[in-house]
Amino acid sequence: MTRYAMLIHTTRCVGCFACRVACQTQNSLPASDSFIRYEEQESGSYPVVYAEQVPLQCQHCEDAPCVSVCPTGASYINNEGIVLVNQERCIGCKYCMTACPYNARIQDHRTGEVEKCRFCVWHDDGSVPEPACVDTCVTGARIFGDLDDPTSEVSQAIVSHNAKPIAAGLTRAKIYYVR
């Protein structure tokens, strides 16, 4: 089995937003829409303060609430653990958007359909695809790979950095963060 996942090293992220631009280009999104957004987190107290950019996108939850609420079956999980939207079935009811606790879905107002990060899945022609955000990251803050393969770079990085999902107790997310 293959279970694709990602690791994001927020302490390496410099907040250049190159991943968002790469994603928008990859997915032909207008400048106003994107599958990646950022939350800024400040910590510490004056004068020792830190600002951290946390990139957020679909977490490809294993127990995806967006999939269970979707009335048309448009939202689904493929056999590699990637959560996808079958655009031909989506009616744009936005039920999935309310169900996603990470606010990771957007509605494309050109079509009315709902979309989100797809781990650049359509590149998959037998070879392991490298999502555009991973490819483009200038500091190498993103690692993509197979969770079920203990020797994969992502599996090993999760263990060595003790990476964790962004929030405990929401869903079984498959994007791991090093913070």
Binding site: G92, C93, G112
Partner: peptide
């Protein structure tokens, strides 16, 4: 439901 409004046949998927 914008996308369904534009493609009404998709409403049949509602029962899936």
């Amino acid at each position: 439901a914008e996308a369904g409004f534009k493609n009404p046949l998709r409403f049949f998927y509602l029962l899936t």
